[in-house]
């Protein structure tokens, strides 16, 4: 990790929730609307920008995505698309959750798009009990509501192979 004081204008330092610092090129950081707004509002790059809630592992992933997109902005779109589809492949739900939160917080639209889409795809073709398990959502229905919901689901699911 480079010390934050000697950073030149082209770099800035981001600090993860677990205290790890990342030296980032400015044009890479600009992929994040949050960072862009901070830089626009007269933010000196000598400061360390803390990103609580984003751990080092997630931040590394996020910056990897940003770097690819910042560097490839003028190159082929097809290459980026294949990078995007590979990027989230085989990612576990915990990492995906951290990533979508980070993308949301740092306002990185492209990353938010692919992460949210990946989560939406995870829900597909699953009964609600399974969705509950995957997302660890507590069933807060009363028994009556639960019965009504079951009835609704029976109509939606019955008759299909």
């Amino acid at each position: 990790m480079a010390s934050s004081i000697e950073n030149n204008n082209e770099k800035l330092t981001l600090k993860s929730s677990d205290g790890e610092e990342f030296l980032v090129e400015k044009h890479v950081a600009l992929q994040s609307t949050l960072l862009q707004n901070m830089l626009d509002s007269d933010c000196s790059s000598a400061d360390v920008i803390p990103l609580p809630k984003i751990d080092a592992r997630t931040l590394a992933l996020v910056l990897g995505y940003c770097k690819k997109h910042a560097d490839a902005s003028s190159s082929k779109q097809g290459e980026l698309n294949s990078f995007d589809s590979e990027f989230l492949k085989d990612m576990d739900m915990g990492a995906l959750f951290n990533l979508v939160l980070a993308a949301n917080f740092m306002e990185i639209k492209g990353l938010l798009d692919i992460a949210a889409q990946k989560i939406a795809d995870t829900i597909k073709d699953k009964p609600h009990q399974e969705v509950r398990e995957i997302f660890h959502v507590e069933n807060d229905y009363t028994p009556e509501e639960e019965a009504a919901v079951r009835e609704e689901n029976r109509w939606a699911f019955e008759g299909f192979p």
Binding site: Q117, A120, I123, D125, V131, R132, V137, E152, A156
Partner: peptide
């Protein structure tokens, strides 16, 4: 996320995924 799911599952039986989401909580 639910908007994305709803927009993609317009045909039955895929549409049932939207109903399933409504049953989660």
């Amino acid at each position: 996320i639910i908007q994305r799911l709803e927009a993609s599952q317009t045909l039955w039986p895929a549409r049932r995924d939207v109903v399933a989401c409504g049953a989660v909580c």
